[in-house]
Design a protein around this nucleic acid. Structure first.
Ligand SMILES: [Mn+2]
Ligand SMILES: [Mn+2]
Ligand SMILES: [Zn+2]
Ligand SMILES: [Zn+2]
Lengths: 144, 144
DNA sequence: GTTGAATTTGATAATCATTATCATAATTAA
DNA sequence: TTAATTATGATAATGATTATCAAATTCAAC
């Protein structure tokens, strides 16, 4: 595992905030980093429990919040109920094309779309900080 | 009030589905149409109760689902918890720039962005049906 | 208009994701 | 080691939405 960089970011952030390190947070961070998916808190909790079955779901929620705050993770909301978390640090920004039939999604980015969003924001005197673009439709597999 | 067109759409849809008309649904539809806002089910329920205080929240949820199905309304999810509903019929498609400071939003659309989304979808052999673009940042008022 | 089968309704319970609470355990600076 | 502070996990609480169900209503057929 070569997540020293991410771990350093997290530990520095925790210290900066006057918080303390813990075994649970380390486990949760490592499990999150090892799993290159868009997980819900519950799914991540299941994975973490394989290593340390006593870890509580509340701590997973608390840690995910910290991961988002320090820039290692980012929230994602598809149509379904639960929030999903994806890797943020060291990952290019991308948008998602979600298939309404199978639920799978494709990650993609169009630099021109990104630029035009800036232009659109300027037009209404809005300081753009970020965006979430979800495209819905049918993926190639589901088109039969 | 000149919502005959919308009411006709709704009543036809209800009949098509083998459902029945009701006073409550009529009230909810009219209140929704009169209020040109992005309401939550709860907010709409409050408005409807001013006319008919006995209307239940469950019926508001049920009716909003029908309104979305027949194309009169459309769901909207900002960062907050509750789903919001906006007018869909007779309204141009638009995206939203949400201010992270005051919570207000601007509606805007860029035809070029729309086109480029189609191009992006084609590139990955995806049949695009729709999209939700949320842009986050600071609005002109909050910039001081 | 009456009837009767089907749908609708509102109150309320249930669900689901998330957050709050709190007593106990772990961390850490001194 | 101490002692103050934070972290943890079990569990309760919350908030939005959905499910349940008995009673009310709609409406097509008589
Ligand atoms: Mn992604
Ligand atoms: Mn809008
Ligand atoms: Zn698919
Ligand atoms: Zn603002």
């Amino acid at each position: 595992m070569a997540f020293e960089e991410e771990q350093k970011i997290f530990n520095s952030f925790v210290k900066e905030k006057g918080l303390k390190q813990s075994k649970q947070r380390d486990d949760i961070l490592l499990t999150f980093l090892k799993t290159e998916k868009h997980l819900t808190a519950d799914e991540l909790h299941s994975l973490v429990k394989k290593k340390n079955s006593s870890t509580g779901i509340a701590t997973v929620y608390r840690t995910l919040k910290l991961l988002c705050e320090c820039g290692l993770s980012s929230e994602l909301r598809f149509g379904d109920r639960a929030v999903r978390y994806e890797h943020f640090y060291g990952h290019e920004h991308h948008d998602h094309l979600v298939c309404v039939k199978c639920g799978n999604f494709i990650e993609a980015v169009d630099p021109e779309i990104e630029k035009l969003q800036e232009r659109l924001a300027k037009k209404v005197n809005f300081s753009l900080q970020g965006h979430k673009l979800l495209m819905y439709g049918v993926c190639s597999k589901c088109k039969k």
